[in-house]
Design a protein around this nucleic acid. Sequence first.
DNA 1: CAAACTATGCGTCCAATGGACGCATAACGC
DNA 2: GCGTTATGCGTCCATTGGACGCATAGTTTG
Lengths: 226, 226
Amino acid sequence: MKAGSAQWWRARYAARERQRPRAGGLELGRITRAALEIVDAEGLAALTMRRVAEEIGVRHTSLYRHVASRDELLVELVDHVLGEVVPQTTGRGWRADLEQAAWEFRRVLLAHPAIVPLLTLGQLLGPHALRGREFGLGLLTRAGWAPSRAVHIYLTVAHFVIGTALLGTGGAARGAEERTAMTELFAGLPQYPLVRELAEPLNIPDGDQEFDFGLTALLNGMGDPR
Amino acid sequence: MKAGSAQWWRARYAARERQRPRAGGLELGRITRAALEIVDAEGLAALTMRRVAEEIGVRHTSLYRHVASRDELLVELVDHVLGEVVPQTTGRGWRADLEQAAWEFRRVLLAHPAIVPLLTLGQLLGPHALRGREFGLGLLTRAGWAPSRAVHIYLTVAHFVIGTALLGTGGAARGAEERTAMTELFAGLPQYPLVRELAEPLNIPDGDQEFDFGLTALLNGMGDPR
DNA sequence: CAAACTATGCGTCCAATGGACGCATAACGC
DNA sequence: GCGTTATGCGTCCATTGGACGCATAGTTTG
């Protein structure tokens, strides 16, 4: 069964209820936490089962008691990260609430950039993902949006947040060597004059400005509920 | 040097000029083409150097003459795919052109869903990526948008396209078992009433509708140049 | 309180993978 | 025609994900 599919999640939820954890024993939370530390510090490539086990102080085969494969670990890791998202209502209307939630989501993704590509691994049906969905949909339906409309808005905003996080600041060149390498690169490619000319603005120091621009445009273009 | 960095791209472009390809010999194009076939048919996990080599009819170590590592192959593969994007001007104004380009970009990404997560691997500075940038920026500046504005719009739309492609149809359950597994899953989780209630609309059969909604809202909210 | 049960971690083992390195060779420019 | 050199091949190795059976300690039940 493919990790991350609806079927897999179903079995996973069932297994979580069935199990009786042991005191002092290993548990999923400790595994995903160790995995997240590694990924944050050294990137996705450094995340091996052996490395995770070492971090916990255990042989790597022990992990397979709690996670059937590395792919499963990655899927659980994603939901673990989504658990860091804590959206809150602002009391200033649905739009402010939605913007706040989007920024909060963005904050978490930027804090763990290495896991963003993992969002494709399977469907986002973990407990934390569902909590987020519930929050967003509640927000919009309470504001008076029709269900189908609420779904559209929710998905659109979520996808926008993920897309911007995935590409970071749009490929900004960080560091001195990167900057010089980039200008040298463009200097040798006269066929792209605009790219070279706009290289400076494309190197946005922080993508927050661009995120703000896009999110505002998105919400402006959506109108109001009825 | 990290594959996909500006420095790497610079060295890469230089190497490409320096080299004298040999008739009948292996070349980068054949490698990326074979890699793409494998990825499309069997997913990213099936893409091993040995598998690619087998497809071409060559020992896997031979590939390392043209590509220093698997990561480099992936970066090249991404640009190869971006080469399939062929945006065109419609003659019906900048907004129509931009929409057309966005749909074209989306079409290509959906045709090769497995490579979408790879868009994070490095900066998109390959020849095909730059061609796309040049097109988009040209479109917007010709329409009268100020440079900084053009950059923002370009990035926002690009990120939106990628975000929607990354999450596909928002986690729609495809196939009968997936659908039943999903309803069974929600049935056991009474704490998320809205998620369950809106499960049907969330399972959009094709994300095109949602994409259209988001893109329209985005462009509506941006106003006009000048 | 003792015995049965069972979840858990460990040891060992294996196949597949990414990659390094030196060598033979055949195509190209002169 | 000849040297140069890009190219592909053979061999080798460390690392990785994972399978499987076993010993053991915590929990439950009599």
